[in-house]
Amino acid sequence: MKIDISFITINYNSSHHTIALIQSILHHTSIDLNYEIIVVDNASEPDDYTHLENAVGHFPQVSIIRNRINNGFAGGNMLGINHAHGDYYFFINNDCLLLNDAGNFMKSFLDTHNDVAVTTAKVTDEKGHFSSSYKQFPSVIKQWFGNSVHRALSSKSFPSNKIRLESPTAVEVISGSCMFFRAVNFDAIGGFDTVFFLYCEEEDMCKRVWDHGKQIYFLPEAEIFHKGGGSSGQNITLEKEFYISYKLLIEKHFNRLERILIKTALLFKQFRRIFTKKNGLSLFLFIVSGSPIHQSLRYKQSIKRVTSSLHSR
């Protein structure tokens, strides 16, 4: 059977979010679409995985892939791709909810816009505010002088993420919480780079989409709710993880002079935060030390033993 959309999400000790997401997909997605829901469980604790399996494992649209190690965002999604059959890939965070037939809206847009490879929806928070649906790619000017100056001097006039866009609009980078890809375009650029464990995957991916000659669009007609922090929360360990990924991003996409300028600006900013932010000194020293990748959460885990299941693959 031809599959129109492969919904792909990651569960990590947050099955209550994943179950709610799946229920919203089943409720809102058009019956005229053939779709599958692929859940990659990134080595959750046994109780959380069992809860997930018992709640949604019986739905014919749902496949649960039990991972023995936490591969992070990029690695988890790429594992899901190995089991995906859709013409479109809908990567969505498990702490999101569909508020309407978002997948169908984005599919219809891409069906008629061959120059666009990926779209995102209007992603909102509990107060109805835009929840970082789109943003700008890092640059020397942005790091030193801010977003406004960067936009003014950029060769492409991408909108500010503070503006409420009311029509389909080309944007530079979209949030990893909601990425709707044409499968052939995603496959052509090699998918997510698994060198990134938790952060900066979307910046890297979107940069490669533009470099590949395709566009990225924000579609306000498609609506998603994003709670945020469903699997991670906020602590200094995760902040360090961000700077590890940010360093990898800068090293990958900028020349030597640009890297020096960006890292210098980052050091100045973080130095000021020593006096204003909790854990500011620890983060400053971490960045000064080069944000060493060996401190990544990727290397602070062991492979788990799991039992077989009728519902998982």
Rank of each mutant, 00 (worst) to 15 (best):
I69D: 05
I69R: 14
I69L: 12
N70T: 11
N70L: 03
N70E: 04
N70P: 06
N70Y: 02
N71C: 07
N71V: 06
N71I: 12
G72V: 13
F73V: 07
A74I: 11
A74Q: 09
A74P: 06
G75F: 15
G76Q: 11
G76Y: 09
G76T: 07
G76H: 07
N77A: 09
M78C: 09
M78W: 04
L79W: 05
L79K: 09
L79A: 07
G80R: 06
G80D: 10
G80F: 11
G80M: 06
I81C: 13
I81S: 04
I81K: 09
I81M: 13
N82P: 04
N82W: 03
H83V: 06
H83Q: 14
A84M: 09
H85C: 14
H85W: 15
G86S: 08
G86C: 05
G86K: 10
D87G: 10
Y88T: 03
Y88K: 08
Y88F: 15
Y88H: 14
Y89N: 09
F90M: 04
F90G: 03
F91S: 10
F91M: 15
F91C: 13
I92R: 02
I92F: 11
N93P: 15
N93I: 00
N93D: 15
N94R: 03
N94E: 09
D95M: 09
D95C: 11
D95G: 11
D95S: 07
C96V: 03
C96S: 14
C96G: 07
C96Q: 07
L97E: 14
L97T: 06
L97I: 08
L98S: 07
L98Y: 12
L98D: 09
L98P: 02
L99C: 02
L99K: 00
L99Y: 00
N100C: 01
N100F: 00
N100A: 00
D101A: 00
D101Q: 01
A102V: 00
A102F: 00
A102T: 00
A102Q: 01
N104C: 06
N104D: 08
N104M: 06
N104Q: 15
F105T: 07
F105Y: 12
F105P: 01
M106S: 04
M106A: 04
M106W: 05
M106R: 01
K107P: 08
S108Q: 12
S108G: 12
S108M: 06
F109H: 13
F109L: 10
F109M: 01
F109D: 09
L110K: 05
D111S: 09
D111E: 10
D111L: 08
D111C: 06
D111N: 13
T112S: 14
T112V: 10
T112Y: 11
H113D: 02
H113Q: 02
H113C: 04
H113T: 03
H113F: 06
N114V: 03
N114M: 02
D115I: 00
D115Y: 01
V116L: 06
V116T: 12
V116G: 06
A117V: 03
A117I: 03
A117F: 00
